Amino acid sequence: MSDLVPLIGEPPALDLVNTRTAVGDLLTTSDDLRTWLRREATRFPQVDVLGADADLADVRRLREHTSRLIDHARHGTPPPADDLNALNEMLRVTPAVTELRWDGSAITTARHRIGTPAAQLIAWLAEETAALLTDPAVTKIRQCEADDCVLLFLPAHPRRRWCSPDRCGNRTRVARHYRRHRSP
């Protein structure tokens, strides 16, 4: 993985899309993917991400479909049928099962997917994409306003302008300050 560390903390589908930055792809090798999965591991504890020897090509393919679908959803335009069909196929990669369990005092349900860890990972990421696409907040997704950034974010505050105040926000403010105070 390059010196750039992918941002995390957005909905997982956006975190996945944001691994493709203006300066390059942060998922070019299996090691890059494992590093990204390690950073995201607490976000999907139902999948053994460290044991999931996921196919890099499958994850990148999912990322491309997710990127196009999010772009259409946030702009309110009809999505390409090929992208919808591909995402639906990825959702069906492993069956989702709900099981009843006794927790010592009551019957509870637990939902999980059956299949290899790699297939569970793809299905889980596809499920996260589906959840974001069907959330009314999808229309609020923004692209970072920094000139050299393509990352997407879902603003918690309507005045948020950058993917990260520490990265792009600081760079933009410093550049603006420099332009205002440079000698003629």
Rank of each mutant, 00 (worst) to 15 (best):
Y178F: 04
T139E: 15
I122Y: 02
E99V: 15
P11Q: 07
L26D: 03
E128D: 11
A123T: 13
S105C: 08
L87Q: 10
P117L: 07
L4Y: 03
V97S: 13
D3H: 12
R74N: 03
R61N: 09
T29C: 09
A106R: 14
R167G: 15
P117K: 05
H157R: 14
C144F: 05
A130W: 15
Q46R: 00
D135M: 04
T29H: 10
L87M: 09
T172P: 03
L50D: 11
D166Y: 08
R74A: 09
T21R: 11
R43Y: 04
H72T: 06
T35K: 05
P45L: 04
L100Y: 12
L152F: 10
P136M: 06
L50V: 11
D55C: 01
P12L: 14
T108S: 03
R167V: 11
D58S: 14
D148E: 15
R180M: 13
A126S: 05
H75G: 02
T66R: 08
D82H: 10
E127G: 15
A96N: 02
W36S: 08
P95H: 09
T19S: 04
E64K: 13
A13V: 02
A57P: 01
L69F: 04
R160Y: 01
L87P: 02
C149L: 08
P11R: 07
A131M: 12
Q143V: 15
R20H: 14
A81R: 07
V97C: 12
P95W: 01
A13P: 00
W36N: 06
R159V: 12
A106D: 10
